[in-house]
């Protein structure tokens, strides 16, 4: 591993270092950054690398980063992760309400209190809007999808690998139970190889989602007991624990049961997905190989064409 620069004691100092180097553009809010020319190129290269791994084998679909609110409701996201949710509020009042809103704004108050709920929310996982669009009766062998998009997680942090808004590149399977497990296992292995091939020191580990509250602790225990989710972890910053840069998750029939999606044999379908965190992979690469892309190992540069 080449020297990433001075050793920094916290996520915030490392973040400030990347800002000082011009790779990140501060916005004033932790977890929201602009990206420099080099970082944009790097993230695009990571996307191309991930995209090539599934080329031709998946139906490519894209959805906006804003989804119908009902998508978060039916997927169980609001039930399991209320602390991570972002919903869109909009102004629908008349002149009087507008003036009241401006008075609050001018007084430095919370003008968003003058907004009302809407039918849309911020997408929390790239595959979320996909499931309701899958036709109820799957063909023999199931269906395989390639989705990618911006997601939102309300977990403000100065850790660069934990942003409020980031991109996930996912390969999703919906079909029978064994197919869903095979998809997850295949991609856990392939992702670890792909990321290792870029010179990252990675490990695949059993993982669980940060389900909320007491109910969440029970769900976490069940998820771990069932060995449903695996993460490929790597270092993304100095003096910090490793971070998941890719995860592969078997949902059992959680999504398909709610949506009435069935296998060709007529049974409730199962699903699984692998999600590559494009920015997190880029940050892991920057940390491993240093901020100067021209000085990176030849192999990583060749694989990513940077």
């Amino acid at each position: 591993m080449s020297d990433p620069g001075p050793v920094l004691s916290s996520g915030a100092r490392y973040r400030d270092e990347l800002v000082a180097r011009g790779l990140l553009l501060a916005t004033g809010v932790d977890g929201l950054y602009g990206f420099s020319n080099d970082l944009v190129r790097l993230i695009a290269a990571v996307e191309t690398y991930v995209s090539a791994a599934g080329a031709g084998k998946y139906e490519v679909l894209r959805f906006p980063p804003v989804v119908p609110r009902v998508v978060l409701e039916r997927s169980g996201y609001v039930r399991s992760f209320p602390d991570l949710v972002g919903a869109v509020r909009t102004f629908t009042g008349g002149d009087e309400a507008h003036h009241a809103l401006l008075r609050t704004l001018d007084a430095g108050g919370d003008w968003t209190a003058g907004l009302g709920g809407s039918d849309v929310a911020l997408c929390a996982a790239a595959c979320q809007p996909l499931y309701p669009t899958i036709t109820p009766d799957l063909p023999v062998g199931g269906r395989r999808f390639d989705v990618c998009g911006y997601v939102f997680r309300h977990e403000p942090s100065s850790d660069v690998a934990r942003m409020l808004s980031f991109r996930q590149y996912e390969y999703v399977y919906a079909g029978d139970e064994l197919g869903a497990l095979a998809h997850r296992d295949h991609w856990t292995e392939v992702a670890a190889e792909m990321l290792s091939d870029l010179g990252l020191d990675v490990a695949a580990t059993l993982a669980s989602d940060p389900f909320f509250g007491r109910a969440g602790r029970a769900l976490t225990a069940t998820q771990r007991e069932g060995a449903l989710k695996y993460e490929v972890v790597a270092a993304t910053a100095p003096d910090a624990p490793t971070t998941a840069i890719t995860s592969a998750n078997c949902h059992l029939d959680h999504f398909c049961r709610e949506l009435g999606i069935r296998t060709a044999a007529g049974e409730t379908a199962h699903s699984s997905c692998v999600g590559f965190g494009l920015e997190r992979i880029a940050f892991a690469l920057l940390f491993a190989h240093g901020p100067n892309l021209a000085g990176w190992p030849d192999r990583a540069r060749a694989r990513l064409a940077v």
Binding site: A218, L219, L252
Partner: peptide, 21 residues
């Protein structure tokens, strides 16, 4: 019984019996 339903079951049992698992 799904894992999510089992959690609902757990919380309801806690309410009903005044206990905490």
């Amino acid at each position: 019984l799904t894992s999510h339903a089992s959690v609902g079951l757990m919380l309801a049992l806690e309410d009903r019996f005044g206990i905490e698992f």
